[in-house]
């Protein structure tokens, strides 16, 4: 039982990082832009969020929790958004190939993140910790989290896990129920149609990419300040990158539905951590490296099954990955 609870908690925390990236990527893809720069953008968000929190608590003698949250989240969000805007400028305005820009963004973002994150590591050390930020970001609900199985698996997380749920559900309602959501989906399905209908395609694309990137950046903040106990190690950038790729896969896995991404991300988490808990629960031994590829294998299987029973309306946006220029002949 204790093992199972620990497994679920690990899975949910892991899934939350993936969920943030997946929500951000979904918003971007609904505008018709495949952003393979997600890992880089998440890394930038994580690094700047951490550096902000670290600098704040080291510069004042009596750090304030609300201010710490505000600084970390806004720095993470805004820095990721700026990275997203660079991607948007290149792909929306200059019509550069989205895959090339995205992959470059990943390389660039991981590099930038590692550089600035590692800047605050004291000389000679390999990692540094923002202890106050950690206590704020991983604070649990005082009473509920003690209440047995439910209390431990549902109420024992830092506030950002619940924030992710709120964002995921709000984004889903926004996409399905609102007029603005309809317009955004139309752009991803057929930008020329949306344009001819009087929708400002460029504005929507920029906003979707910027906001999507910002949310992705929050995933990085969550990874460092909660999941990784507010510790920045020199290798943190690569760890974020490997998780962020999963969030790109999750978008396809749940068919561009951010509400479904919630359980999808937790399933990915369960798969990812299976190697650590399955042996003790079932009493068998599993190769760690093979076990860690489980989420990817699940994605591939789902893709194959999904394509065999493909139904219209459940595919990705029709113009995903294609540039749009009104006066093109």
């Amino acid at each position: 039982m204790a093992n199972l609870i620990a497994w679920i908690i690990r899975a949910v925390v892991f899934g939350t990082v993936v969920l943030y990236g997946s929500i951000g990527e979904t918003i971007t893809e609904k505008a018709g832009h495949l952003n393979l720069g997600t890992p880089g953008i998440m890394c930038i968000g994580g690094a700047f969020g951490f550096v902000g929190a670290y600098a704040y608590e080291n510069s004042v003698s009596d750090p304030n929790a609300a201010l710490c949250i505000l600084i970390a989240l806004s720095l993470g969000f805004i820095s990721a958004m700026i990275a997203g805007l660079i991607y948007a400028f290149l792909t929306v305005s200059l019509l550069v190939n989205q895959n090339v820009v995205g992959l470059t963004m990943t390389i660039f973002g991981v590099g930038i993140g590692k550089f600035f994150g590692s800047y605050v590591i004291p000389e000679g050390a390999v990692s540094t910790k923002a202890s106050f930020a950690n206590s704020v970001f991983s604070a649990k609900l005082p009473f509920l989290s003690d209440l047995g199985f439910i209390g431990q698996t549902v109420f024992s997380y830092g506030f950002m896990m619940y924030l992710a749920l709120i964002i995921a559900i709000s984004v889903h309602i926004f996409m399905q129920k609102t007029r603005t959501g309809l317009n955004l989906r139309a752009i991803g399905e057929n930008p020329a149609t949306a344009d001819a209908a009087g929708i400002n395609v460029t504005k929507y694309k920029y906003l979707a990419i910027a906001i999507g990137s910002g949310i992705t950046g929050l995933g990085g903040v969550y990874y460092i300040l909660d999941y990784n106990s507010a510790t920045w190690a020199t290798a943190a950038g690569n760890a974020i990158e490997s998780l962020a790729w999963l969030s790109v896969a999750l978008v396809i896995f749940v068919r561009w539905n951010t509400a479904k991404a919630i359980w999808g991300s937790y399933l990915f988490g369960l798969c990812y951590w299976a190697y650590a808990f399955i042996p003790s629960i079932l009493g068998i031994s599993v190769n760690t490296d093979i076990a860690e590829i489980l989420p990817y294998i699940v994605t591939i299987i789902v893709l194959i099954v999904g394509n065999i029973r493909s139904r219209k309306g459940h595919q990705g946006p029709a113009y995903l990955g294609m540039s749009y220029y009104r006066e093109e002949r």
Partner: peptide
């Protein structure tokens, strides 16, 4: 549109996965 000019293009400008009504109100405020 503001001037009351509407064009029916040779290659229809419709979103396949939307309903007729959704296509009609697309972009309207």
């Amino acid at each position: 549109f503001e001037l009351g000019i509407g064009m029916i293009h040779q290659h229809f400008k419709l979103v396949d996965v939307f309903t007729a009504a959704e296509n009609v109100v697309l972009g309207l405020k």
